[in-house]
């Protein structure tokens, strides 16, 4: 028994040969996750059904207005995108095409209290695969850690084991944001004391590392404390995504096709993040 466990541990650590076994077992345990999620789901359903007509009407009105604003913005956005592609082709650099998304719903279960890993109800049967970025309406949430047949596990950007390459939106300064273990905090440990970054700066994904598509908001810088006797400053940021409240998440397929360009090597930055 012990030998078998050790064998499993080693195999799983160094290869993915045990993936089928995990997939089969996950189908058995999925009902448990579903049951644990049920009270939350029921509560939401009840809330939805007792919502008054007036409230729905006003909500509808607000949403319509928002839709109008968003579509107007999108009009401009598509023109800007075309312009961006044109300019980039002038500069001999590549441009990634748009992305496809799948809406997944969070199962309110907790796997290990010291890890920021959540479970959603879409799995590899929907084509989800490991390493896909996950967003909500306000920014980056995390990436797919394990894709099981009926569900998948998503590691949040605030997990202590997660790092995400970011850049400051204002001036393009590149750095890496590392999870702090707290849902409302990210650490930026690799910036010197004289770095041009101030509280209020928006951090967006830089697209380096090849996992997260470029240009999505990640966090807003909250505090910058200089450490005169140390090489790096202590910088903390607050994720823009509502990590603990949003129940609907978007799983993104970034289109790996690249617009024709003269130098195919320019965007080939592969790395582990």
């Amino acid at each position: 028994m012990v030998l078998l466990s050790v064998f499993f541990l080693v195999t799983e650590q160094y290869s993915d040969k045990l993936k089928p076994l995990r997939h089969i077992l996950s189908v058995f345990v999925y009902p448990i996750q579903y049951i644990v999620d049920a009270p939350t789901r029921l509560f939401n359903n009840v809330i939805n059904s007792v919502e008054g007509y007036e409230q729905l009407l006003s909500e509808n009105k607000v949403l319509k207005q928002q839709q109008l604003i968003n579509s107007a913005r999108l009009l401009k956005f598509s023109a800007l995108e075309k312009e961006n592609i044109r300019l980039r082709s002038l500069l001999d650099s590549s441009f990634k095409l748009g992305e496809q998304v799948l809406i997944a719903e969070l199962l309110s279960v907790n796997l290990a209290p010291y890890e920021h890993v959540v479970v959603v109800n879409k799995g590899s049967r929907f084509g989800v695969h490991v390493g896909q970025p996950v967003l909500d309406a306000n920014g980056i949430v995390g990436q797919v850690l394990k894709a099981l047949p009926l569900s998948s596990e998503i590691i949040l950007i605030t997990d202590p084991n997660h790092a995400i390459p970011v850049q400051v939106n204002r001036n393009g300064l590149h750095t890496i944001a590392i999870g702090s273990g707290q849902l409302n905090k990210l650490n930026l440990p690799f910036l010197p004391n004289n770095a041009d970054i101030v509280p209020g700066d928006l951090l967006i994904t830089s697209g380096l590392g090849g996992i997260f598509p470029q240009g999505y908001p990640v966090a807003v810088v909250e505090s910058f404390v200089e450490q005169p006797d140390k090489p790096f400053a202590v910088i903390q940021a607050r994720p823009t995504a509502a990590l603990n409240t949003s129940r609907e998440l978007l799983i993104v397929w970034s289109n790996s096709q690249v617009i024709p360009l003269n130098n195919p090597l320019s965007e080939q930055v592969h790395g582990q993040d």
Binding site: S5, F8, L9, R22
Partner: peptide
């Protein structure tokens, strides 16, 4: 099963429980 449920390395809880 708990390993799969909590997304840990397969065999971890199995070994500890056994």
């Amino acid at each position: 099963l708990v390993d799969v449920l909590t997304g840990q390395l397969l065999g971890q809880y199995a070994l500890a429980y056994a």
